[in-house]
Design a protein around this nucleic acid. Structure first.
Lengths: 142, 142
DNA sequence: ATAAATTAAATTTTATACAATTAAATTTTA
DNA sequence: TAAAATTTAATTGTATAAAATTTAATTTAT
């Protein structure tokens, strides 16, 4: 057996996994201030752009399924950030719509990307390269 | 407000988060065959190298705390892969030692990195670049 | 037109994650 | 040396995450 292949330091998956967790952890203090978790934050990002979207479509954007989204969206509805309504055309679909309160949250979130950016010291070229490589893998694997 | 900064497509955190999840999901069929979850797999990787390690030290390697590791390690002990024993020198520490059965599992895991590699089509240079960038961010952020 | 297949959410179960707290042991300091 | 501070696990509570199943609605094919 090649003794090297199963060493943690020779895996690409591990820094990916660890880096993802640590970056998300960095968001916590900022997201706490506006009462969102990271997953809720990326849902809101989609809603700030789209205003209205089905659970199915939202899940496709975020690589999440209804088992994760349903309880999450119910909580956010209870917080007044969005409304869930079954589609009239196709009753299997649930349509999410952002509320005024949800729209207003965007202003409070506006400085978060910059704050996170300050924690990560990559050159524009490095950041771009990382971005491209991650989306390349994501496109291949999902 | 700059309307661009909060768009999902302009975030670096999101492909990191999604890519990590999707890659780990790819491991599932292979890990299922040997009865491990991904987190258990990276614990075993450390144990295949170290044989013996404290919970504290293991957590530092994996960026995980006792709240995650304790129940995980208890399950793995019940499966016969390792033994948990409180240190004699410092009773606050719990020492994890791999068992013969845990050692044997390594042979069954030996082909997993290659299998995953087949799902990810990056040139050696791209893979190296991704690896370096991830560890760079990890070093800055944690 | 209706049975079969598909689709979309919701639910259930299992497994992380991690913050916060607790408990116990050890080390430091006054 | 005894109190205070620190360290290490364990526990508790909350929040994902995903597989598998269920339910309900819609579409397809005969």
């Amino acid at each position: 057996m090649n003794e090297e292949v199963l060493k943690l330091k020779n895996q690409l998956c591990f820094p990916l996994y660890a880096c993802s967790k640590e970056v998300i952890r960095k968001y916590k203090p900022f997201l706490d201030k506006i009462g969102l978790t990271y997953t809720q934050y990326i849902c809101m990002m989609v809603l700030w752009e789209q205003k209205t979207i089905s659970v199915k479509n939202l899940g496709e954007h975020l690589f999440l399924d209804s088992g994760t989204l349903t309880p999450l969206l119910k909580k956010m509805e209870a917080q007044g950030l969005l409304i869930r309504k079954r589609s009239a055309e196709d009753e299997r679909s649930v349509i999410i719509s952002i509320t005024k309160q949800g729209e207003q949250l965007k202003e409070q979130a506006a400085n978060i990307p910059e704050k996170i950016g300050q924690c990560i010291d990559l050159s524009p070229e490095e950041a771009k390269s990382l971005y491209v490589l991650l989306y390349k893998v994501l496109g291949q694997i999902s």
